[in-house]
């Protein structure tokens, strides 16, 4: 078994928090993982991605080869498209529809979403709305992780366990908000799938 994920978004959206939860849930299930991430200059408000590979066998490359990703999991729609060439023909796209417009030439959202829907399996989530519903607009990353959790080879309880671990230093309320965001994302993806 192997499962390769491209995580995408904009610096500050919490891509690495998603990675933390998946990494640890994978380890909990005895899976191997490698996760290449972006730091430093490339992080400030710019495009951010992380290659996250899960396998029950040995993983050599830290980077996913083109056309090999089982999933693109993106907290921002334009960023979803940036990594299309990594997706395998039967791969899944789990993407937010909430644009992060910090550039002057951001394309029409409609055009972006139309392109995303060209993927054979796309799950589009209004992460901003659901995160607000959960209690914080900052929880969009956990909304998207919840949506992706339907497809990941990881147990829901393990993912939730590490959401707890990740946020517990910031207090119970923050943990609750993020778990709620996860649930709302998961529900939205489940109803969209039907």
């Amino acid at each position: 078994m192997k499962y390769d994920i491209i995580l995408a978004g904009v610096g500050g959206q919490g891509i690495l928090s998603i990675a933390f939860v998946i990494d640890n849930a994978a380890l909990e299930q005895g899976l191997n993982f490698k996760q290449a991430e972006v730091h430093g200059m490339s992080q400030r408000g710019g495009a951010v991605q992380s290659h996250l590979r899960l396998s029950d066998g040995q993983i050599y490359s830290d980077l996913i080869p083109l056309g090999e990703a089982d999933m693109i999991l993106s907290v921002e729609p334009l960023e979803t498209l940036r990594y299309f060439s990594y997706l395998r023909p039967d791969g899944a796209v789990v993407s937010s529809t909430s644009p992060y417009k910090n550039i002057p030439d951001y394309p029409e959202l409609e055009d972006v979403l139309r392109e995303i829907k060209r993927a054979p399996l796309s799950v589009l989530i209004d992460s901003e709305k659901l995160a607000k519903q959960a209690g914080s607009v900052k929880a969009q990353n956990m909304v998207m992780l919840g949506a992706a959790s339907l497809f990941l080879p990881l147990k829901e309880e393990n993912l939730k366990k590490y959401i707890q671990v990740l946020f517990e230093k910031r207090g119970e309320q923050i943990v609750k908000v993020n778990l709620k965001a996860f649930d709302l994302g998961r529900e939205a993806a489940a109803s969209g799938k039907k």
Binding site: G46, P65, E79, L81, R88
Partner: peptide, 29 residues
């Protein structure tokens, strides 16, 4: 891995292409 694939004569997989849209860059700021 793809550059190494080419060097070893292994075909690189095509992946999906974005067709009708120019992807604006998002540099750090």
């Amino acid at each position: 891995p793809d550059l190494v694939a080419e060097a070893l004569g292994v075909p690189v997989k095509p992946g999906l292409k974005v067709e009708s849209l120019k992807l604006a860059n998002r540099p750090p700021q």
